[in-house]
């Protein structure tokens, strides 16, 4: 008898890096549940072609923590457990802290950090019950270095890395691995607005001479979720082409 497929929850899996992660996990025969505020062509297509037994997408505002908990609980009941969680959802906000509105600050913290805490709490229940699991936080190189105009965003990403380290201590003994992947600059909605000149300057500062791609990040995520990384725990894996070295 073949083993039941593993179950993964990926927050914000409708586009960009989240979409690549969802696709990679589907390719690896996971059952994948994801959510975003609104549907995209990707999730509609996956819903049709993969089918409800292996793919689930839900419209969900991650600031609604009650709905977030119910989402995790529903997946646990539907598919019998949760093997992996990728906390990928987040928004990029920029601007000097003193010029940021309180609403922008609160929304960034709510989406990038509070939602991840609540979703992780909910997903850890079935992982603790099964004494096995994998939590991967998508943080950022901005959580490791200072960047003018990214105080709020950086603070949330550094907090995710702090969560990774402390949670690793808490749940490691229960067979649950916790790690972060910290991407540097990669081609995404968040870097699409960078002016051509600034982009060239940026490339010159990156030892590998280019911006990353979602595939570069996704491959590391895939490795971190695999048994090949079975002894990697409590770490922040930086994927930035050498920018921070």
């Amino acid at each position: 008898m073949s083993a039941a497929p593993k179950v993964a929850i990926v927050s914000g899996g409708s586009r960009g890096l989240g979409q690549s992660i969802v696709q990679a996990l589907l390719d690896d025969d996971y059952r994948v549940a994801t959510f975003s505020r609104s549907p995209t062509a990707f999730v509609e297509e996956a819903g049709r072609t993969v089918g409800p037994d292996r793919f689930h997408w839900q419209s969900l505002d991650a600031r609604d923590t009650q709905t977030l908990r119910e989402f995790a609980r529903d997946i646990q009941r539907r598919w019998g457990g949760i093997d992996a969680l990728v906390n990928n959802a987040g928004i990029g906000t920029e601007g000097l802290l003193t010029l940021s509105s309180e609403r922008e600050i609160d929304e960034t913290v709510a989406l990038n950090l509070t939602a991840a805490l609540h979703l992780t709490r909910a997903c850890l229940k079935p992982m603790l019950a099964a004494r096995s699991g994998n939590v991967l936080n998508i943080s950022s190189v901005s959580g490791l270095r200072g960047h003018r105009g990214l105080s709020v965003y950086s603070a949330t990403k550094a907090a995710l890395d702090a969560l990774t380290r402390s949670l690793a201590r808490e749940v490691g003994p229960s067979g649950i691995r916790v790690n972060s992947v910290a991407p540097g600059y990669f081609e995404s909605d968040m870097t699409a607005g960078i002016a051509a000149e600034a982009r060239e300057n940026l490339k010159r500062r990156i030892p590998l001479g280019r911006l990353g791609t979602t595939q570069d990040i996704m491959r590391v995520v895939r490795f971190m979720l695999s048994d090949a990384a079975a002894y990697v725990h409590g770490q922040v894996i930086v994927v930035d082409g050498g920018l921070s070295c």
């Binding site: 850890l124 603790l128 019950a129 004494r131 749940v171 003994p173 229960s174």
Partner: peptide, 8 residues
């Protein structure tokens, strides 16, 4: 950690 598992 046992109590966390009990509760879960």
């Amino acid at each position: 950690i046992d109590l966390a598992r009990v509760v879960a």
